[in-house]
Each structure stands twice: as structure tokens, then as C-alpha cells.
């Protein structure tokens, strides 16, 4: 997995609540058996018209946000399905960090498996960051995972919280399966005891 340490980039404002995974990547793009190539269809139904032409008003179609690496969004981002195609599409587009007041549980977890940092901050902090993002390409936001800070283009700093284990894995680009297999002895002994206690499983 890709490491995430620091990021300085353009932030795209997406001031909508309940952005669901069907919006992030509609189901017709789930028929792939690969993880790559989904970025072109990120937010497909909001980004393109019925003929496949770009809708100029959509934020990621605007010249100043085409190379955005950060999304600032509303409450409950990523709600809906468990499809990991959502973070795959976000990552493939080039976005490495999503900031919102809250995230749906499965989406939040899926981000960490793909080197994406989801940052949950209180609504008033997100409001400030949304304003900063609206300034466009000249306003770069700074993210520092080690320090757990987001800094606006004006130098205002917001501290965010996240789980220490998730932080450790993201900072070092660690592979979960590899880490878990180091504990294979614990799994073996649990499994042996569970099989004795609950043989019907």
C-alpha cells in the first residue's frame, strides 16, 4: 500500500451532505475485475451528461480543480454500499485525502486500505476549509499525518484525531494481511479453542 505522510495540494469543495457510494462510482463501473482505471468515472453521473460530455459546472470539471488532491465535503460522506470501487475511483483520480464532518463506517475503513486519508473535523472547521477550497488552484492546503494537522492557505491550523493503529499503517504503507499473519499463532490457538467450544460452527 502507498504511504501517506504529508500532502500539499488543491482542495475541491463538494458541499453536499450524504454523498453516497452510488454517486462516487455508479454501479455500471463495478463490473471490472481490476482495481485501477476508475478515476475517469469518479462522480460519473454528476460529472458527465447523457452523451458523455463534461458538465462544466461540476467541480472536478472546472480548470482550477482538475488536479485536486483533496476533497472537502459534507456530513456522512461515503454512505451506502461497501464497494471499495469508491476509494479506488477517488485514488485513481488523484485524490489522497477527503475532509468531512463525518464518514460512513465502511467507506472510512476502505480508505485506509488504499492509502487515502479520511479526516473527520467538526462542522465549523469544515466550513472554514470549504471556504479555503473555494479559492481555487492558488490556495493549497497542507496535510500532515504525523502531526495530525490540516493547514489552510492562510495558515490556519486544525488538529484532527484518528485511530493510532490506522495512522501507523498509513504512515508506513503497511499491508494488513502481512501484519495479521504475524499473529498466526494467536489465530491458530483461538481457532482450536473455538472449535472445541462450538464444534457446530
Amino acid at each position: 500500500m502507498d504511504k501517506f505522510t504529508t500532502l500539499t495540494g488543491i482542495a475541491a469543495p463538494t458541499p453536499m451532505v450524504n454523498v453516497d457510494t452510488d454517486m462516487i462510482i455508479p454501479k455500471q463501473f463495478l463490473k471490472t475485475i481490476k482495481r485501477s482505471g476508475l478515476g475517469v468515472n469518479l462522480f460519473d453521473e454528476m460529472r458527465y451528461d447523457d452523451d458523455g460530455n463534461e458538465i462544466p459546472g461540476f467541480v472536478l470539471n472546472q480548470p482550477q480543480y482538475r488536479s485536486a488532491e483533496i476533497l472537502v465535503a459534507g456530513d456522512n460522506f461515503g454512505c451506502g454500499s461497501s464497494r471499495e470501487h469508491a476509494p479506488w475511483a477517488i485514488k485513481d483520480f488523484g485524490i489522497r485525502c477527503v475532509i468531512a464532518p463525518s464518514f460512513a463506517d465502511i467507506f472510512y475503513n476502505n480508505c485506509f486500505k488504499n492509502g487515502i486519508l479520511p479526516i473527520a473535523l467538526p462542522q465549523d472547521a469544515v466550513d472554514v476549509l470549504m471556504k479555503d477550497a473555494e479559492k481555487g488552484a492558488n490556495a493549497r492546503m497542507d496535510i500532515d499525518l504525523e502531526a495530525q494537522t490540516v493547514t489552510t492557505s492562510d495558515g490556519e491550523v486544525f488538529h484532527f484525531e484518528l485511530d493510532s493503529f490506522k495512522k501507523h499503517c498509513l504512515l508506513n504503507g503497511l499491508d494488513d494481511i502481512g501484519l495479521t499473519l504475524e499473529k498466526a499463532a494467536s489465530i491458530d490457538s483461538f481457532e482450536a479453542k473455538a472449535t472445541a467450544d462450538r464444534p457446530w460452527v
Partner: peptide
């Protein structure tokens, strides 16, 4: 509960899930 594809792979390989 539902899980993402990376977690599907994790369960296939280890029969466990990393959870809090």
C-alpha cells in the same frame, strides 16, 4: 456486517478482521 474488498481478501487469507 459489510466489508470492502481489501477486507474480503484479509478474511480469505486469515479468517479474521482487524476491528475496534
Amino acid at each position: 456486517h459489510g466489508i470492502g474488498t481489501s477486507e474480503v481478501e484479509h478474511v480469505l487469507a486469515t479468517q479474521t478482521l482487524i476491528q475496534k
